[in-house]
Design a protein around this nucleic acid. Sequence first.
DNA 1: CGTGTACTTGAGTGGGCTCAAGCAGGGTGG
DNA 2: CCACCCTGCTTGAGCCCACTCAAGTACACG
Lengths: 240, 240
Amino acid sequence: MHTPVERVSCKGRSNCFACNLRQTMVCADVSLEDLVAFHVPIDDLVYPPGTALFETGERAEAVFCIRHGVMKLVRQDATGNQWIVRVLKKNDVAGLESVFSGVNEHSGIAVSEVHACRIPMAHFKLFIAQHAGLQRRLLETTQQTLREMDAWLSELVNANTPARVRVARLLLRLRVGDGDRIHRFSLKDMGTILGVTPETVSRVISDFLKQDFLMHVGKVASRRHFRGDIAALTRISQEG
Amino acid sequence: MHTPVERVSCKGRSNCFACNLRQTMVCADVSLEDLVAFHVPIDDLVYPPGTALFETGERAEAVFCIRHGVMKLVRQDATGNQWIVRVLKKNDVAGLESVFSGVNEHSGIAVSEVHACRIPMAHFKLFIAQHAGLQRRLLETTQQTLREMDAWLSELVNANTPARVRVARLLLRLRVGDGDRIHRFSLKDMGTILGVTPETVSRVISDFLKQDFLMHVGKVASRRHFRGDIAALTRISQEG
DNA sequence: CGTGTACTTGAGTGGGCTCAAGCAGGGTGG
DNA sequence: CCACCCTGCTTGAGCCCACTCAAGTACACG
């Protein structure tokens, strides 16, 4: 279960100057001059599906700016059960929860192939210490996460909403950008998120497929994405 | 539902110098001298059960340090349903979520009689701006809240855990300090938190009462508290 | 080609929901 | 003081959605 996989580096040193995400990321307050002065060892890495970017209980050694793909944050509760508490997509930053505690609160597992900039914790902390604006932005980011958790809580996990509606809501949250492509999680993962069994998710999904609310991508069904009828799914998601 | 009640001030200006919570609260980094220099208009207020300290969508005008009692943060989702996303007790600070957005994310409703120090937002922001340490503490507080939400999510709301176990877990979260007294929420509130109907909560609670896992306080059953057999409830809470 | 993992599909069961009736306590007004 | 209402709680009977258990399929990988 989530066996640690060798961490794989592919693209080598990233080019922050050319990065089209830089303005939207946490680091937007850091000037180009700062970056140059720092000689920051930020790597641009690729993690295959199933890889752990970090694991619960380990020392927190980096934060990750996700440039492509989707990952899950998994919490281990007291009884050893696994529980997916958050989903991170492009433009999200993983590992912020551990900046001060120093120990990872969650395991971070790649669901699709994930491309991420890895910023060593020591450098990230230096950035924070030297840029008051960055600290404030970090605070706002954390509060934004809190708001998303509120919505997650009330829309997804709510047991007295039919599974069918909650699956639709989850699918809409897994959209790639604003298009009709939807990150495809395993039935087990979706079940863990929603608090239902994989069987139930399977029945709902295959019903959606039958009614063309969901479609496979490519001739051989891609295991990585669905194509979704966003309007139809939105309608179903509002039935709660 | 949650009709706005006149806000009631009882004790007048609070004495921050004598406040025994000051070291443990968010404001612990603010020195006595700072407080004097500020002539801070912090009021020590008392809110009867059911009172709204603040309401969703209103401009955020203050943060509240809770000195006594228990309150709930209620979120209104898209379909107008109400959903309790957090419970705040003594030493917690309400309203931090709105410091930057400027608009209340939740309604904050007193469940028992709540005593709270009301710090006007303008002053709170000035504090933050002038004390780098305070901003960092605020960040840590917000991340702590995030961790508690993770636990809330995986332990309380999880639908495939029996209602009986989840009620026990909720009761343990509602303990007053470390004793055996437990803040008593309405059946409807507990149902809203757990995602079950009030009838189900009623059946579980009356079963707990029959087995002496829960007891009434005083000869005439207090509507505000239970007394709980913490060991027994803990045992039940681990059955998940 | 065999094995493992993920998914599908079916039949039967049960926990919690729904609907409903009844009760208790606390206000309010006569 | 009682009559009244209103809200919250209790308790019961029946039902249904999702769970459980199980068997079978599809596909990836060694």
